[in-house]
Design a protein around this nucleic acid. Structure first.
Length: 272
DNA sequence: TACCAGGGCCTTT
DNA sequence: AAAGGCCATGGT
């Protein structure tokens, strides 16, 4: 199958390793591979274009363009955000970041696993979780386990995944999603505040995890997940007071700020 | 209100 | 080599 070529710009590396998704790995300097929508997707970054392999042009148009938020014009958003000096720095530091539109259940479950955990370990847990309970796609790749499958597991089944005390949270989330008590469509349709409360009915889902699931998995672009890093960023950069422009593009602004404070030497130095 | 719960990768000391 | 923190939340 010939690769799909696109001249739409985004940076796979910063996008995949910004902490919004946990399913991609680097394969060499400019190639990244991961499981999306039960398919093994390989993306290669060339000088002025990206190559997509593993999916058909029809799949690219119908599913993956939305997944990569390619219908959103980032130049407009970034131009406006850059009026804020902190955002200008954050955007300049990782200009190719994009907000991914992921599967609701996968993000919900992934961010339950993420709590009080670091990104390499989260990635490893999700890999093992998929290998154990997902469907085999090829030798090295497995789909993310469905809520229906996970809902029928026991605490002992999940023990080898070593998610510790989070196991019972995962089970409660899976059971509520599988039963339809919590639905992606409802989470998406509700206003943000009500959507957060809706997700917080799940054991182990609090404000932070709810915002992540809504932002990354339910199209809530005004969601603004605040973990220790973001709180630090808001304190240091804005003296605790988030400016209006950041509120306007909350989710995307958060993505830039999070990546900036996590990775930029200058920003790190400011934390001392 | 403060602390603790699995566990392991990574950073700092 | 050892210690502490990590895209948190619920229970005591």
């Amino acid at each position: 199958m010939n690769p799909i070529v696109t001249d739409i710009f985004f940076d796979p590396e910063t996008t995949f390793f910004s902490g919004q998704c946990f399913r991609f790995t680097a394969k060499g300097e400019n190639t990244f591979q991961g499981v999306v929508k039960n398919k093994v997707l390989t993306i290669t970054k060339e000088k002025d274009r990206l190559l997509f392999e593993g999916i058909t042009p029809a799949e690219f148009e119908s599913d993956f363009a939305h997944y990569f938020d390619l219908h959103t014009d980032y130049s407009v958003i970034k131009a406006e955000l850059k009026n804020d000096p902190v955002m200008a720095k954050a955007i300049a530091f990782a200009p190719g970041l994009r907000l991914l539109h992921q599967d609701f259940w996968e993000t919900l479950c992934s961010f339950i696993i993420s709590q009080n955990n670091n990104i390499p370990r989260i990635t490893g847990i999700i890999e093992n979780f998929s290998r154990a309970f997902g469907e085999k796609i090829d030798k090295d790749h497995f789909s993310f386990p469905t809520a229906q499958v996970v809902a029928n597991l026991t605490l002992d089944d999940l023990a080898p995944i070593k998610t510790g005390f989070r196991v019972k949270y995962i089970l409660d989330a899976a059971q509520k999603v599988a039963a339809g008590t919590v639905q992606a469509e409802t989470a998406q349709a509700l206003p943000l505040t009500e959507a957060v409360a809706y997700l917080c009915q799940i054991k182990g889902v609090g404000e932070k995890v709810a915002h992540c699931a809504l932002l990354y998995g339910a199209n809530h672009t005004y969601a603004f997940p605040q973990d220790v890093w973001m709180k630090r960023a808001v304190d240091i950069f804005y003296n605790g007071d988030v400016p209006e422009i950041v509120h306007k593009y909350a989710g995307i602004a958060q993505l830039f700020l999070f990546y900036y404070i996590r990775n930029c030497e200058e920003a790190m130095a400011a934390t001392v």
